[in-house]
């Protein structure tokens, strides 16, 4: 039997003391970790919940603002109509405005045209790159370009109006159009001469033939009465400003 710091140390006491030391160490580590882990779980769950709540709130707000914008728009139209009734010059201006709105995509338009629906290929286990059997932004852009070439006057993709500034771009498994995500099937509505639009798409060596090779599902429907909605966002030019008459380039080159 030895004595350390005035305490009697036997084998039993020493051994038990060592185990006590280890057990104490592990207990405090465990308590610390359990507290920390539960806190981590709680915070991550809370974060998701708050984010979801925020998202819903923002969506509601967005919806409300959109409704408001539409109301103002119809009010504005009423005022324009009233002004047009009063004078001939106002009438002319209103007519020009209507045309500009149609070409800018700021007015709902209707007329004859085609509805072109595209969906991913159903071919499975082809052994080749699976990406070839999915619809990509290039495929959609080819179709849109072909329709524009055939004289389409108004275009929408899954109900999103395509403007002069619109983009179609793959982001993950969806495509972004005007900043909104859209998933297949993609429905392209084009207003124009239905026969011309159809032949443009179906021509030999054209875009439909190319995509058929990969089994992309496509359906074309001609219709006499189609609607293309207006662009619901805000068009905001930050950099481009109209050139004033004095600075306008003469004859194309300077």
């Amino acid at each position: 039997m030895e004595k350390i710091l005035g305490l009697k140390i036997t084998v039993a006491r020493g051994a038990i003391a060592i185990i006590c030391l280890i057990v104490g160490l592990v207990i405090s580590l465990q308590i610390k970790s359990v507290v920390r882990n539960t806190q981590l779980d709680a915070t991550s769950a809370q974060r998701v919940e708050t984010l979801v709540a925020d998202l819903i709130k923002e969506k509601d707000k967005n919806q409300g603002l959109f409704q408001q914008a539409m109301e103002y728009k119809s009010q504005l139209e009423q005022y324009q109509d009233m002004a047009a009734e009063q004078s001939d010059s106002a009438k002319l201006l209103a007519e020009q405005l209507r045309k500009a709105e149609i070409s800018a995509g700021l007015a709902d338009v209707e007329g004859p045209g085609v509805v072109f629906t595209m969906n991913d290929s159903k071919i499975k286990d082809s052994g080749e790159n699976i990406n070839a059997y999915l619809i990509h932004d290039q495929d959609l852009l080819l179709v849109i370009n072909e329709l524009r070439n055939a004289g389409a006057e108004a275009l929408s993709l899954n109900g999103e109006r395509l403007l002069a500034t619109s983009y179609v771009r793959c982001v993950g498994s969806v495509v972004m159009v005007n900043g909104q995500p859209y998933a297949p099937p993609y429905v392209i509505t084009a207003i124009g001469d239905p026969t011309q639009l159809e032949t443009a798409l179906q021509m030999p060596g054209g875009v439909v033939k190319a995509l058929e090779f990969y089994g992309i599902e496509m359906a074309l429907k001609k219709s006499d009465h189609l609607q293309v909605p207006r662009y619901s966002g805000v068009i905001d030019f930050k950099y481009a400003v109209p050139v004033s008459a004095a600075d306008a380039p003469q004859g194309g080159s300077q």
Binding site: A17, L21, V23, G24, L25, V26, I27
Partner: peptide, 11 residues
């Protein structure tokens, strides 16, 4: 004493 030292070390 050993237990207390262990707990302190763990913290």
């Amino acid at each position: 004493i050993a237990l207390l030292i262990g707990i302190a070390a763990g913290i």
